[in-house]
Design a protein around this nucleic acid. Sequence first.
DNA 1: CGACGCTGAGACAACGTTGACTGGGCGAGA
DNA 2: TCTCGCCCAGTCAACGTTGTCTCAGCGTCG
Lengths: 352, 352
Amino acid sequence: MTQGEAAPRSTRSRPTMREVAALAGVAIKTVSRVFNGVPTVDPAIVARVREAADKLGYRPNLTASSLRRGDGRTATIGMLVEDAANPFSAVLTRTVENVARERGVLVLVGSLDEDPERERELARALVDRRVDGLVIVPAGRDQSYLINEQHTGTCMVFVDREAGLLDADAVVSENRQGAITAVNHLLKAGHRRIAYLGDRASIPTAAQRFDGYRHALEVAHIEYDDEIVRHVGSSEEAAIAATEQVLALSDPPTALFTSQNFVTIGAVRALRAMGLQDSVAQVGFDDFPLADILSPGISVIAQDVEQVGRTAAEMLFRRLDGDESPTRTVTVPTRLIERGSGEIPAEGPCHD
Amino acid sequence: MTQGEAAPRSTRSRPTMREVAALAGVAIKTVSRVFNGVPTVDPAIVARVREAADKLGYRPNLTASSLRRGDGRTATIGMLVEDAANPFSAVLTRTVENVARERGVLVLVGSLDEDPERERELARALVDRRVDGLVIVPAGRDQSYLINEQHTGTCMVFVDREAGLLDADAVVSENRQGAITAVNHLLKAGHRRIAYLGDRASIPTAAQRFDGYRHALEVAHIEYDDEIVRHVGSSEEAAIAATEQVLALSDPPTALFTSQNFVTIGAVRALRAMGLQDSVAQVGFDDFPLADILSPGISVIAQDVEQVGRTAAEMLFRRLDGDESPTRTVTVPTRLIERGSGEIPAEGPCHD
DNA sequence: CGACGCTGAGACAACGTTGACTGGGCGAGA
DNA sequence: TCTCGCCCAGTCAACGTTGTCTCAGCGTCG
């Protein structure tokens, strides 16, 4: 809490083309031409205009420009994620930003916190600012409120989950197959009693992963037991509690499939607190930093978040460039990373 | 890569107030009044206008509005961070977003990757879009290029590092004192040979932390030895290499002060690879997820990123509300979190 | 030497909206 | 009954820019 000096505020207002034109002794339209790189302007005049602009500290007003311009483009896209602070959303944002930057496009970011109401509000706020396109990780299950915007030319791509009640492009991870891979991996290590701990079942990705879990068990002829299935939401605390509960059962699981990031971490904490990290196997869905450095390392089904983000951004810009092909959903593969926790063998009598 | 249906694109263009007015049978100005909540409109007319707007799917154009409006506010601020994907930046972004949201303000985000050129480009891009204010984690050491914008009424707050050659508000963490605390903590555990591993010295925060390191050693009458000081940048790989190097010295350090996030994590990896995690002490600057779950847990000087972000956003909005008090720099305290790695005692002959 | 095309710059209107002003209708007070 | 003032909706211009059109000047070719 230091230093200072008289703060010079809003002394003069921002110069406009009019003022630059006056100083350079040309018409306003000529200034416009110079700043738009129109080649039919006398180099001497270009120099005079540039000089005048520099002297005044002139910067073009993109909002006015986009208003007048034919295409009405704002060179801005909107991005709605679950929470800008979480690693998945952060990496996604950055990847989209990278693609956008190549085209001089900036990204407006909003966090939804899984609140469908907020999703609508923020989507509207973005539309009101006339963003050229939207990248949305939807919180709700009904995006029909965007149907109007879609018809009036706002391009949009959904990420991680498909849009509900709206025909739109989407990029998703291979959730169901990833879950199947995870469970099969545990089965291969001899486990027959595998708990499922995941996010609320109302969340589409969670539902798909759960579906994969059930499918894999069914194929292996293992009876489904909802005693060892918990849809706990995405908090570490809830995951810790759930882990403790299932392991306190009279017939506890020998392996855990944790289908969401924070759930995985919560389970890791719980296992360590109980000293079971080396005897209960675990495979998590979604990789996380330092998963490899724990002991044992945590085996995961890793999503390729960069690929998801890049694909989504590229699809969006292709639409903006006029692609009118039918909408599609691109599925990005996941892959198993073995680090130790998923390879812990089942204890007790061997069923092989 | 599935599904599809004829994609209906840009069929009609977005409706305007003119069209709503025509449908409702009123003047365009009346529509404007309705959407701005002006109370002197007949409720029956309000209803008619709203109905017409809904039928057309009308949404006001904020860019046009802000152009015409007296204050010229766009209800958008710009945020430039080091990398939207890294946890520090992501949390910062989210905190600023939260404060902005309360005021109906959206946030444009850009990543600088420590590139001063990019900083200028993106700052310009934001100014060209007439953002109401800027929150900047500066990459360069010279922000005088913003002097014009400052004088023409663009408010700005710098975060994590103060602005160079520009008198502007800033919110920074207690870097020097935090480093002193870290080193003192290691001294208290009996260490006399403490390595410094940090980001490039050209980065202001790194320089301040390094300064704290030297100061603490000086106060403790320990001779400075640049054999065990490495300014390695912010990559894990470089940190791993540096850690290996200093520990391979004939007179290796018994403790490490790692002054940056990725450096800390790199050192953690290197120590584990060498099996030294329980014999070489370590204190890191900046907390990171799962630091507590490692064994030993990693002791850190934690920055209060939320507080930094919130403070910066609040300062910015106070300026936007007309605060013309002298600029100031707010310093947010850091705190030591003991988790084990920093409490490992010095081996060998005791000097006490 | 005159008509013509071309080059380069300016005039004007418009993008979608709102600030400032105008004007019609109506009730109240003289 | 007339006037004054108020209430409410409409007209007009302007925000900063660019698309369209116009026009002056000049070189060229028949």
